[in-house]
Amino acid sequence: MLELIFILKDIILPIFVLMVIGFIIQRRFHLNVQTLARLNIYIFVPGFIFVKLYEAQFSASLFGKVFLFFILYVLLLFIVSHISARLLHIKDGKKATFTNSVLFFNSGNYGVPVNDLVFKSDPFAMSIQVIVLMLQNIFLYTYGIFSLQSVSVGKLKALLGYFKMPVLYAMAAGVMLNAWSISLPSFVWVPANYIAEGMISLALLTLGAQVAMLRLTAQLSEVYFSLIIRLIIGPLLTLGIIYAFGLDGVFAQALLIASAMPTSINSAVIAQEYENHPDFAAQIVLFSTLMSTITVTLVIYVGRLLF
């Protein structure tokens, strides 16, 4: 019970405060949500990724293990989401948004604080979460954008269009400058930090604004299926991987908790940017975040029991 109170007070409540502010502002001033999404994609997310990759400290061995887990986990989720989409007769652009809602989970402004709370700032556990966050961002801004664009402009144009995205160059710059231990001058590092620190706030405000424009549909079966896969089947798949490869301790527990996060806010942001069922994406993010108050708490409890 105490664990639930901590998560609600320290993790969930701050997230919903910012969402409510975005909701109220949208209702009062009728902002251009498309502009908010573009600010996220073209400025704040690249800045956030650059800073996190530049600051990250982890060994090649740890990165390799988490990378292999991530590839296997995402592959299994992809198969489950595609089977579900067929059963629900979800097609074309909506199918891409549905799949993205399952594959992309909130490793940053939700996963990082949860990790910090559960493991009490353990640097090893946080390194695992940072690697998952990095891989999620790379995957989101490669496959995630490609899947949405390819529906309307075709696969070749979608692939070429990705190279216009600043997030690609932010990732490359962050990794290379980190690897080469290059110090950045303050006139670069200070504004980069300002941008990175604003990303979470703007993303949550954007989600709140999207929610304010939502028209909840009577048929929510697709949303429910997304929640089941993301919040229940996802952690169960991770448990299977953990036992199959004999993982244990903090490493296993951190992976299990990381896999239990709700749908990424940025999946709704890119759906808004590319106008691919943004209401559907925002509904999933909203309900996924709400339901995670229960499921994430249970996963934390199970992780502590098993590992």
Rank of each mutant, 00 (worst) to 15 (best):
I21C: 12
F44I: 05
T293H: 00
I12K: 03
L184K: 13
A212P: 05
G303M: 09
L103I: 07
W189F: 11
F225Y: 13
V80E: 05
L256D: 10
L87N: 04
V167K: 00
A37I: 10
Q219T: 09
M199D: 10
F119P: 04
L168D: 01
V269K: 05
F23R: 10
I270M: 13
L117C: 00
G303Q: 07
L231D: 08
F245Q: 08
L236I: 14
F29S: 13
P123H: 07
S186R: 14
P262R: 11
E222F: 01
I270A: 10
E197Q: 13
Q34F: 06
F69D: 06
S147G: 01
N106E: 05
K52C: 05
G246Y: 10
G161L: 08
I145K: 02
K94G: 06
Q57Y: 03
S226A: 15
L255T: 03
T289G: 08
L103K: 01
V188K: 02
L168R: 01
N106Y: 04
L255S: 02
P113K: 12
I131C: 11
L290W: 09
G47E: 01
F48C: 11
L133C: 02
A37S: 15
F29H: 08
L140N: 05
T35K: 08
Q34R: 11
S107P: 04
H30L: 06
N115I: 00
G208M: 00
K9V: 14
N106C: 07
F105Q: 09
S101A: 14
N266Q: 10
G22D: 12
V17E: 10
S181L: 07
Q129K: 00
G93C: 08
A268Y: 13
G22Y: 12
S292V: 03
N100P: 04
S183E: 15
I294K: 02
I300E: 10
K91Y: 13
I21R: 09
Y110G: 03
L306K: 11
F287H: 01
V167M: 10
N115Q: 07
N178T: 09
D116C: 02
I79K: 08
L306I: 15
A268S: 15
I228R: 02
Q129G: 08
V223W: 00
A244S: 15
L53R: 07
N266G: 10
L140M: 15
E197W: 00
S264H: 07
I284Q: 14
S288M: 11
V80G: 04
L290S: 05
N100A: 12
I41G: 06
V250P: 02
I5E: 09
L133I: 00
L88K: 12
G64L: 08
Q219G: 01
L207W: 01
Y194D: 11
T142D: 05
L239N: 03
N100V: 06
G303A: 06
A37L: 02
A56L: 13
F6W: 00
A196D: 05
Q283A: 12
A209H: 03
L148G: 01
